[in-house]
Computed example of a mutant assay.
Amino acid sequence: METLNYRYEQGTRSLTAQPQIVGVVGSGNLEVLIEAADLNGACSIEIQTAAVGFGAIWQAVMQDFQQRWQLANARISINDMGATPAVVSLRMDQAVQTMLGDAA
Protein backbone atom coordinates (compact mmCIF):
# COMPACT_ATOMS: atom_id res chain seq x y z
CA MET A 1 0.00 0.00 0.00
CA GLU A 2 1.09 3.55 -0.68
CA THR A 3 -0.22 6.73 0.94
CA LEU A 4 -0.27 9.96 -1.05
CA ASN A 5 -1.25 13.37 0.34
CA TYR A 6 -2.15 16.50 -1.58
CA ARG A 7 -3.22 19.91 -0.33
CA TYR A 8 -4.58 22.69 -2.48
CA GLU A 9 -4.88 26.22 -1.13
CA GLN A 10 -7.25 29.06 -1.93
CA GLY A 11 -10.25 27.13 -3.18
CA THR A 12 -13.43 29.12 -3.74
CA ARG A 13 -16.22 26.54 -3.21
CA SER A 14 -16.90 25.46 0.38
CA LEU A 15 -18.86 22.38 1.32
CA THR A 16 -21.46 22.41 4.09
CA ALA A 17 -23.46 19.17 3.71
CA GLN A 18 -23.01 15.96 5.66
CA PRO A 19 -20.06 13.72 4.67
CA GLN A 20 -20.68 11.52 1.64
CA ILE A 21 -19.18 8.20 0.51
CA VAL A 22 -19.31 7.04 -3.10
CA GLY A 23 -17.92 3.95 -4.74
CA VAL A 24 -17.01 0.56 -3.34
CA VAL A 25 -13.50 -0.70 -2.71
CA GLY A 26 -13.02 -3.83 -4.73
CA SER A 27 -11.14 -5.12 -7.72
CA GLY A 28 -10.42 -2.18 -9.99
CA ASN A 29 -12.49 0.36 -8.10
CA LEU A 30 -12.25 2.84 -5.28
CA GLU A 31 -14.14 4.52 -2.47
CA VAL A 32 -14.23 8.29 -1.96
CA LEU A 33 -15.18 9.97 1.32
CA ILE A 34 -15.72 13.72 1.09
CA GLU A 35 -16.44 15.97 4.05
CA ALA A 36 -16.43 19.59 5.08
CA ALA A 37 -13.50 20.52 7.35
CA ASP A 38 -12.01 23.75 8.67
CA LEU A 39 -8.78 23.83 6.66
CA ASN A 40 -8.35 27.60 6.29
CA GLY A 41 -9.67 27.50 2.73
CA ALA A 42 -7.70 24.45 1.63
CA CYS A 43 -8.69 21.13 0.12
CA SER A 44 -6.86 18.13 1.56
CA ILE A 45 -6.75 14.79 -0.27
CA GLU A 46 -5.36 11.56 1.19
CA ILE A 47 -5.07 8.47 -0.99
CA GLN A 48 -4.48 4.91 0.17
CA THR A 49 -3.67 2.86 -2.92
CA ALA A 50 -2.62 -0.67 -3.70
CA ALA A 51 -1.07 0.54 -6.97
CA VAL A 52 2.38 1.61 -5.81
CA GLY A 53 4.52 3.91 -7.95
CA PHE A 54 1.83 5.95 -9.71
CA GLY A 55 2.29 9.19 -7.76
CA ALA A 56 2.77 11.35 -10.86
CA ILE A 57 -0.50 10.11 -12.36
CA TRP A 58 -2.37 10.62 -9.10
CA GLN A 59 -0.98 14.14 -8.85
CA ALA A 60 -2.16 14.99 -12.38
CA VAL A 61 -5.66 13.60 -11.70
CA MET A 62 -5.90 15.50 -8.38
CA GLN A 63 -4.74 18.78 -9.96
CA ASP A 64 -7.29 18.41 -12.74
CA PHE A 65 -10.02 17.69 -10.17
CA GLN A 66 -9.15 20.72 -8.06
CA GLN A 67 -8.97 22.99 -11.11
CA ARG A 68 -12.51 21.93 -12.05
CA TRP A 69 -14.09 22.18 -8.59
CA GLN A 70 -11.93 24.73 -6.69
CA LEU A 71 -12.90 23.17 -3.35
CA ALA A 72 -12.20 24.96 -0.07
CA ASN A 73 -12.48 23.57 3.45
CA ALA A 74 -12.86 20.04 2.13
CA ARG A 75 -11.21 16.80 3.22
CA ILE A 76 -11.22 13.90 0.76
CA SER A 77 -10.11 10.37 1.60
CA ILE A 78 -9.67 7.79 -1.14
CA ASN A 79 -9.25 4.03 -0.76
CA ASP A 80 -8.07 2.60 -4.08
CA MET A 81 -7.66 -0.94 -5.34
CA GLY A 82 -6.23 -0.09 -8.77
CA ALA A 83 -8.88 2.10 -10.40
CA THR A 84 -8.02 3.76 -13.70
CA PRO A 85 -7.62 7.56 -13.81
CA ALA A 86 -10.98 7.86 -15.60
CA VAL A 87 -12.75 5.96 -12.80
CA VAL A 88 -10.97 8.09 -10.18
CA SER A 89 -12.18 11.29 -11.87
CA LEU A 90 -15.69 9.93 -12.23
CA ARG A 91 -15.94 8.90 -8.56
CA MET A 92 -14.50 12.19 -7.30
CA ASP A 93 -16.90 14.21 -9.45
CA GLN A 94 -19.73 12.00 -8.23
CA ALA A 95 -18.74 12.65 -4.60
CA VAL A 96 -18.74 16.43 -5.06
CA GLN A 97 -22.01 16.39 -6.99
CA THR A 98 -23.61 14.26 -4.28
CA MET A 99 -22.44 16.66 -1.60
CA LEU A 100 -23.46 19.80 -3.48
CA GLY A 101 -26.80 18.45 -4.68
CA ASP A 102 -28.50 20.81 -7.10
CA ALA A 103 -25.88 23.52 -6.49
CA ALA A 104 -23.33 21.64 -8.64
Rank of each mutant, 00 (worst) to 15 (best):
L100V: 13
A42Q: 09
Q10L: 05
V24G: 05
V32H: 08
I45A: 05
S89K: 15
R75D: 00
N73R: 07
V88W: 08
V24M: 03
L33T: 14
A86Y: 02
G11N: 00
C43R: 04
G53M: 11
Q94R: 15
L90R: 12
S27P: 13
S44A: 15
D102E: 03
G26E: 08
Q63K: 05
L90A: 12
M81P: 01
V61D: 00
A103W: 08
A37H: 06
G53K: 13
Q20N: 14
Q97M: 06
S44N: 15
E31H: 12
V88I: 13
L90F: 07
Q66I: 00
L39C: 14
A51G: 04
G41N: 08
A37P: 02
G26W: 01
A56F: 14
A74Q: 05
P19K: 07
A104D: 06
T98S: 01
A17E: 02
E9A: 09
G53F: 13
P85C: 07
A104G: 05
V87T: 04
V96K: 08
A86R: 09
S27H: 11
E46P: 07
P85G: 01
G53W: 13
A50T: 11
R91Y: 06
G23N: 04
L71P: 04
S14I: 02
S89I: 03
M92Q: 01
E9Y: 04
V52L: 14
N5S: 15
Q20K: 15
M62E: 03
E46S: 12
P85L: 06
Y8N: 00
Q63V: 10
A104Y: 06
A36K: 12
L30V: 00
Q20P: 10
E46Y: 10
I45H: 03
I21A: 01
D64M: 09
Q67P: 03
V24D: 01
E46C: 04
V52M: 14
E2G: 15
L4V: 02
